[in-house]
């Protein structure tokens, strides 16, 4: 099937389809970029589709947004929350993954433990975030970056646990056995032998966790009010009393979307595997 020669007609259909798909996927990004470099009055005018030709581009909105303290604060918060959550979940997730790959648990089988971690993935976030909000507000811990790190790390934890335990299982155990013969203990075998071999996968999983935590909106909306507000919540600030400001939306949408999408491209070899929790290897 792969080798079947394509007829000319089929080739044309495929190329038309490909071009349509690319336009369809890329158009929203292009539209955000256009709005971000338009003068406010141009955003509501029809036919302003090509910079320089149909409107005069300006960087004013970018400059004014980047000079706002609350936006820079939000960028910093988003960075701290997403990298913090990804790091915490990858650390504890990798440890659990190694345990599931290398030890046999008796009372509860390894498969059941894996499924238990997997079931985390089906839990609707709204079910947990409201009681979590009550608990946090009763101890006066809302609007804190660390509470968002805690929640995000929990919801991305299935990724490192399941994907990395698969990767550890694909390593031949003989190398760790050799380390034991040389007098290493379990911890040394883990950190010096097994861990370095899964680094590419580890980095990719970290990126996936980081991107999901960066994009998370519900927890941030519920748990932040001022100091810990990250980017996804700050976009809403573009909706002033005067209505939605399209040029502001353009800038903030791009500032929010670009970091996770660009990072995800670095992990693209592992995306299919990551998003299906290891069930399909891309």
């Amino acid at each position: 099937m792969l080798q079947r020669r394509n007829s000319l007609l089929l080739n044309i259909v495929i190329w038309v389809l490909l071009i349509f798909m690319l336009l369809w996927v890329l158009f929203p990004f292009y539209w955000a970029l256009l709005n971000s470099i338009k003068h406010p009055s141009d955003t509501f005018r029809p036919g302003t589709w090509v910079p320089w030709l149909t409107f005069k581009p300006t960087l004013d909105t970018w400059i004014s947004n980047l000079s706002q303290r609350e936006i820079r604060r939000a960028l910093l918060n988003s960075t701290l929350i997403s990298t913090g959550a990804a790091t915490v979940s990858v650390i504890i997730g990798t440890l659990a993954a190694y345990a599931l790959a290398r030890f046999r648990f008796q009372r509860v089988s390894n498969g059941s433990i894996t499924t238990w971690f997997l079931s985390q993935r089906i839990l609707p976030p709204v079910v947990v975030v409201l009681p979590f909000f009550l608990i946090m507000s009763s101890i006066g811990a809302t609007d804190k970056i660390w509470s968002l790190i805690l929640l995000n790390a929990t919801f991305v934890l299935p990724f490192p646990v399941i994907i990395l335990s698969q990767m550890f299982r694909e390593l031949p155990p003989e190398m760790e056995e050799a380390a034991f013969v040389d007098g290493a203990n379990r911890w040394q075998a883990f950190t010096r032998v097994a861990l370095p071999l899964v680094v590419p996968g580890l980095v990719s999983v970290w990126i996936i966790c980081m991107a999901f935590s960066w994009n998370e909106f519900l927890f941030a909306l519920t748990l932040t009010s001022k100091n810990a507000i990250p980017m996804p919540v700050i976009i809403a600030g573009a909706q002033h009393t005067r209505g939605v400001q399209f040029h502001e939306v353009g800038v903030r949408v791009l500032m929010t979307m670009l970091p996770p999408t660009i990072l995800a491209l670095l992990a693209q070899r592992y995306i299919v595997r990551g998003l299906t929790l290891g069930a399909v290897k891309g």
Partner: peptide, 15 residues
């Protein structure tokens, strides 16, 4: 094709 998967959903809403 990976780009949409990691585009912030709430940003897509405002866009």
């Amino acid at each position: 094709m990976i780009l949409p998967l990691f585009a912030t959903p709430v940003a897509l809403g405002y866009l």
